[in-house]
Each structure stands twice: as C-alpha cells, then as structure tokens.
Simulated assay, not measured.
Amino acid sequence: MSEQIQENSQEKEFSPEESLQLIRSMISKTKDAVAVDSFYFLFWGWLVFACCAVEYVLMVYFKYPDHSFVWWSMPVGGIISGTYSARQARIKRSMTYIEEALSYLWIAIGLSFFVLVFVNIVSEAWKTAFTYYILMYAIGTFVSGKLIRFKPLVIGGILNFILAAVSIKFNFANQLLIGALAILISYIIPGHLLRIRYNTKK
C-alpha cells in the first residue's frame, strides 16, 4: 500500500516546464470554455444595455414616471440564465480550477448586485446606483480577463473603473448612458470577440 502511495505521489510530481505547460493548457481550455459560454456576457450585456437605453428614452423623452419598470426583466433574465446554466452543467462533466474560480467570482458579483439593489431601494441611493454597478462590471471583467489572459476583458474592466469614478459627477439619466457604454465595452464587445476567436480557432 505504501509503495502504491509513493508511486502515486511520484506520478503527481511535475518539472517546472511541465507545470508551466499544464497551467497554459488549463488557461487555454478555460478560455475556450468561456468562449463557448460567451452566452452569459452577450445575454446579460445586451439585456442590461437595452434596459439602460429604454429607461433613458422613457425618462428623458417621454417623461414616463414609472420608467424603472424595465428592470423587472432582470429576474426573468435570471431564470433564463439559470436554465441555460443547468443544461450546461448536465453536458459538461468536469471543470478546470480556473473555470471553478470564475464561477465563484460571478456568483459573488451576482449576489453583490442583489445587495446593491436592496441597499439602493432602502436608502433611496438609486441616483448614484450606476457608479457601483459599473464598479461591479469592472471587477468581474478585469479579474476574468486576467484569469483567462484575454486582453479585451482586461481593457474593458480598466475602462469601467474609470467610468465608475467619472459617473458620480452625472445625474441619473446620464448615468444610464454611461452604464450602457460600460456594459458595451466590458460585456458585449469582449463577448463577441471571444466567440469570434473560438470560431476562427476551430
């Protein structure tokens, strides 16, 4: 038994070159998996972009008092996204460590959004809400981009950190436009680039 354990431990030992190659392979596989599942970036990106644009038009041009009703599409989006995730989990048998780290990151980001929405409603801080939403976009996309070494996500994240800082100077209507821009450069464009990269690689 001890000899078998020793043999197993020896099998798990890697040279520095082999370890580096394993890490590169894991990153490559994760990048491909994220490219396949760019559904999340594109689905949430276009949904939030549309909500920002529609609320801005209702608020500024039509003076509609209940303009925020568009955000009730978020729970519907959550159901669609959850259904897609459950189907993918049945298809995919295993995950790399980086994929697992990414999943935990976005679960934390998602929970943070729910907390922020609750805080904004209770404290009536919704007038500056997008400053903090954009900050969440920045954290999620920057870390994701670094983990899978995909520059468009990293650049989108960095630009969103800047937009979050700048947005605090604008009123809510203009924050909606800044939010739409933030989601465009951090979710939608990188999501499409990821999918293009994967399709050209096949």
Rank of each mutant, 00 (worst) to 15 (best):
R93S: 12
T128W: 07
A101Q: 08
V143Y: 04
A125K: 09
A129W: 12
T128C: 02
V122W: 06
L111C: 08
I91H: 10
I148H: 03
A138E: 06
G145M: 05
L105F: 00
F118C: 08
S123T: 15
L147S: 05
V143R: 02
I148N: 04
M136Q: 14
Y97R: 12
S144Y: 00
K151Y: 09
M136D: 10
E100P: 00
K146C: 09
I158W: 01
V115K: 04
V117E: 12
V117H: 08
Y132M: 09
T96D: 08
V117S: 15
S103F: 07
L159M: 09
L147R: 00
F142E: 00
F113D: 11
V115Q: 00
A138G: 00
M136H: 10
K127Q: 11
A138L: 04
L111H: 07
G110M: 05
G145R: 08
E100A: 15
V117L: 13
K146R: 15
F114W: 11
I148Q: 07
V119D: 08
S112T: 13
A138Y: 05
Y132H: 13
I158V: 15
F142T: 05
K127P: 06
V115C: 09
A138F: 03
S94V: 04
F150D: 06
S94W: 05
S94N: 12
S103A: 11
V119F: 09
Y97V: 10
G140Q: 07
A125H: 13
I107L: 14
A129C: 07
G110P: 05
L111P: 01
L105M: 04
R149K: 14
T96M: 02
L147H: 04
N120E: 12
L116M: 11
I155E: 04
A101H: 05
F130A: 01
G145D: 09
Y132L: 09
L153C: 08
V115G: 01
F142Y: 11
L111G: 07
Y132K: 09
L153F: 15
I121M: 13
F142D: 01
W106Q: 02
A108T: 11
L105K: 04
E124Y: 11
F118V: 12
G110K: 06
V154Q: 14
A125P: 00
T128A: 14
V154M: 15
R90Q: 10
I98Q: 07
I148P: 01
K151E: 14
V119E: 13
L153Q: 01
S123C: 09
S112E: 08
K92G: 00
I155G: 00
F114G: 13
R90P: 03
T141W: 02
I91G: 05
Y97S: 13
I155S: 03
A108R: 05
F142P: 03
M136L: 15
F113V: 09
T141K: 02
L147E: 01
V154G: 04
T141L: 02
F130H: 14
L153S: 07
M136P: 06
F118A: 15
M95I: 02
V143I: 15
K146P: 04
R93L: 10
A101K: 09
Y132I: 07
G110E: 06
I158H: 04
G157N: 00
I98A: 05
